[in-house]
Protein backbone atom coordinates (compact mmCIF):
# COMPACT_ATOMS: atom_id res chain seq x y z
CA UNK A 1 0.00 0.00 0.00
CA UNK A 2 1.41 3.39 -1.00
CA UNK A 3 -0.52 5.57 1.40
CA UNK A 4 0.42 5.74 5.07
CA UNK A 5 -1.62 3.47 7.32
CA UNK A 6 -4.02 5.52 9.42
CA UNK A 7 -3.52 5.44 13.19
CA UNK A 8 -6.01 7.06 15.56
CA UNK A 9 -4.26 8.43 18.68
CA UNK A 10 -6.06 7.97 21.97
CA UNK A 11 -5.34 8.44 25.66
CA UNK A 12 -7.56 6.90 28.30
CA UNK A 13 -8.53 9.46 30.88
CA UNK A 14 -10.87 8.01 33.45
CA UNK A 15 -11.02 9.34 37.01
CA UNK A 16 -10.95 6.90 39.94
CA UNK A 17 -11.06 6.97 43.74
CA UNK A 18 -9.54 3.97 45.46
CA UNK A 19 -11.03 2.79 48.73
CA UNK A 20 -8.45 2.24 51.46
CA UNK A 21 -10.87 0.37 53.73
CA UNK A 22 -10.79 0.40 57.53
CA UNK A 23 -7.39 -1.21 58.03
CA UNK A 24 -5.43 1.01 55.65
CA UNK A 25 -7.35 4.09 56.72
CA UNK A 26 -6.10 3.56 60.28
CA UNK A 27 -2.57 2.99 58.95
CA UNK A 28 -2.57 6.18 56.91
CA UNK A 29 -3.95 8.33 59.75
CA UNK A 30 -1.13 7.04 61.95
CA UNK A 31 1.39 7.63 59.18
CA UNK A 32 0.32 11.26 59.09
CA UNK A 33 1.49 11.42 62.71
CA UNK A 34 4.79 9.83 61.63
CA UNK A 35 3.98 6.52 63.26
CA UNK A 36 4.35 3.32 61.23
CA UNK A 37 1.89 0.67 62.32
CA UNK A 38 2.06 -3.03 61.48
CA UNK A 39 -0.66 -5.56 62.13
CA UNK A 40 -0.12 -8.85 63.95
CA UNK A 41 -1.63 -12.17 62.88
CA UNK A 42 -3.19 -14.00 65.85
CA UNK A 43 -2.13 -17.34 64.40
CA UNK A 44 1.37 -17.09 62.92
CA UNK A 45 2.20 -14.03 65.10
CA UNK A 46 3.97 -12.25 62.27
CA UNK A 47 3.77 -8.47 62.27
CA UNK A 48 2.75 -7.63 58.72
CA UNK A 49 3.74 -4.44 56.95
CA UNK A 50 2.05 -3.08 54.91
CA UNK A 51 -0.91 -3.92 57.14
CA UNK A 52 -3.84 -5.73 55.53
CA UNK A 53 -7.22 -7.14 56.45
CA UNK A 54 -6.22 -10.80 56.44
CA UNK A 55 -3.10 -12.96 56.74
CA UNK A 56 -2.53 -14.61 53.37
CA UNK A 57 -0.72 -17.50 55.05
CA UNK A 58 -3.22 -18.32 57.82
CA UNK A 59 -6.28 -16.79 56.12
CA UNK A 60 -7.30 -15.17 59.40
CA UNK A 61 -8.76 -11.64 59.76
CA UNK A 62 -6.33 -9.19 61.40
CA UNK A 63 -6.87 -6.42 63.96
CA UNK A 64 -4.00 -6.22 66.44
CA UNK A 65 -1.93 -3.11 65.75
CA UNK A 66 1.78 -2.91 66.58
CA UNK A 67 3.97 0.13 66.12
CA UNK A 68 7.21 -0.59 64.28
CA UNK A 69 10.41 1.42 63.91
CA UNK A 70 11.10 3.80 61.05
CA UNK A 71 14.52 2.19 60.73
CA UNK A 72 15.31 -1.10 59.09
CA UNK A 73 17.36 -3.18 56.68
CA UNK A 74 17.42 -3.38 52.88
CA UNK A 75 16.44 -6.85 51.63
CA UNK A 76 16.52 -6.14 47.90
CA UNK A 77 17.01 -3.06 45.74
CA UNK A 78 17.23 -1.80 42.19
CA UNK A 79 18.56 1.39 40.61
CA UNK A 80 16.43 2.71 37.78
CA UNK A 81 18.31 4.57 35.04
CA UNK A 82 15.54 4.78 32.44
CA UNK A 83 12.77 7.36 32.13
CA UNK A 84 9.26 5.95 32.42
CA UNK A 85 5.98 7.71 31.80
CA UNK A 86 4.86 9.09 35.17
CA UNK A 87 7.95 7.90 37.10
CA UNK A 88 10.64 10.09 38.68
CA UNK A 89 13.56 11.41 36.64
CA UNK A 90 16.31 8.75 36.63
CA UNK A 91 18.46 7.73 38.34
CA UNK A 92 16.42 6.66 41.34
CA UNK A 93 16.40 3.58 43.56
CA UNK A 94 13.79 1.53 45.35
CA UNK A 95 14.04 -1.45 47.63
CA UNK A 96 12.34 -3.84 50.00
CA UNK A 97 12.97 -2.64 53.53
CA UNK A 98 12.24 -4.68 56.64
CA UNK A 99 11.64 -2.26 59.48
CA UNK A 100 12.65 -3.22 63.01
CA UNK A 101 9.68 -4.83 64.69
CA UNK A 102 8.08 -6.03 61.45
CA UNK A 103 8.31 -9.51 59.95
CA UNK A 104 7.77 -8.42 56.37
CA UNK A 105 9.28 -5.72 54.21
CA UNK A 106 7.74 -2.70 52.52
CA UNK A 107 8.68 -1.34 49.16
CA UNK A 108 9.98 2.22 49.13
CA UNK A 109 12.37 4.67 47.53
CA UNK A 110 15.97 4.68 48.69
CA UNK A 111 17.36 8.18 48.53
CA UNK A 112 19.75 10.77 49.85
CA UNK A 113 22.56 9.16 47.86
CA UNK A 114 24.39 10.27 44.74
CA UNK A 115 23.32 7.79 42.08
CA UNK A 116 24.79 9.61 39.10
CA UNK A 117 27.67 7.14 39.13
CA UNK A 118 26.08 3.71 39.35
CA UNK A 119 29.23 2.09 40.79
CA UNK A 120 29.18 4.55 43.69
CA UNK A 121 25.45 4.01 44.06
CA UNK A 122 25.96 0.26 44.43
CA UNK A 123 28.52 0.92 47.13
CA UNK A 124 26.09 3.07 49.11
CA UNK A 125 23.13 0.69 48.76
CA UNK A 126 23.64 -2.97 49.55
CA UNK A 127 21.50 -5.82 50.72
CA UNK A 128 21.83 -5.57 54.47
CA UNK A 129 22.39 -1.79 54.55
CA UNK A 130 20.58 -0.13 57.47
CA UNK A 131 18.28 2.71 56.46
CA UNK A 132 16.04 5.24 58.16
CA UNK A 133 12.88 7.00 57.00
CA UNK A 134 13.13 10.60 55.83
CA UNK A 135 9.72 12.14 56.45
CA UNK A 136 7.86 14.76 54.49
CA UNK A 137 7.33 18.10 56.23
CA UNK A 138 3.69 18.13 55.22
CA UNK A 139 2.36 14.59 55.64
CA UNK A 140 -0.92 13.86 53.84
CA UNK A 141 -1.69 10.32 54.99
CA UNK A 142 -0.08 8.61 52.02
CA UNK A 143 2.82 6.17 51.77
CA UNK A 144 4.85 9.01 50.21
CA UNK A 145 4.68 10.84 53.58
CA UNK A 146 7.91 8.93 53.95
CA UNK A 147 9.90 10.62 51.19
CA UNK A 148 12.47 7.84 51.08
CA UNK A 149 14.73 5.71 53.22
CA UNK A 150 18.36 6.71 53.52
CA UNK A 151 21.42 4.82 54.83
CA UNK A 152 22.18 5.55 58.50
Amino acid sequence: MEKDIIEVPYTWEIPFKYTAGEVLTKFFYELKEKRIMGIRCPKCKRVLLPPRGFCEMCFEPLEEWVEVSDEGVIGAFQICCMKFLGAPEPPWASGLIRLDGADTAILHFIGGIDLSDIEKGKEAIKIGTRVKAVWSDAPKGLITDIRYFTPV
Binding site: T19, A20, G21, E22, V23, L24, R52, G53, F54, F59, P61
Partner: peptide
Protein backbone atom coordinates in the same frame (compact mmCIF):
# COMPACT_ATOMS: atom_id res chain seq x y z
CA UNK B 1 -22.08 1.88 45.23
CA UNK B 2 -19.02 1.88 47.41
CA UNK B 3 -18.10 -0.63 50.09
CA UNK B 4 -15.76 1.66 51.95
CA UNK B 5 -14.71 -0.72 54.68
CA UNK B 6 -12.54 -2.93 52.49
CA UNK B 7 -9.70 -2.74 50.03
CA UNK B 8 -9.99 -4.78 46.84
CA UNK B 9 -8.30 -7.93 48.26
CA UNK B 10 -10.16 -7.57 51.57
CA UNK B 11 -13.44 -7.60 49.67
CA UNK B 12 -12.33 -10.75 47.82
CA UNK B 13 -11.32 -12.32 51.12
Amino acid sequence: TKLKSYTHPELAY
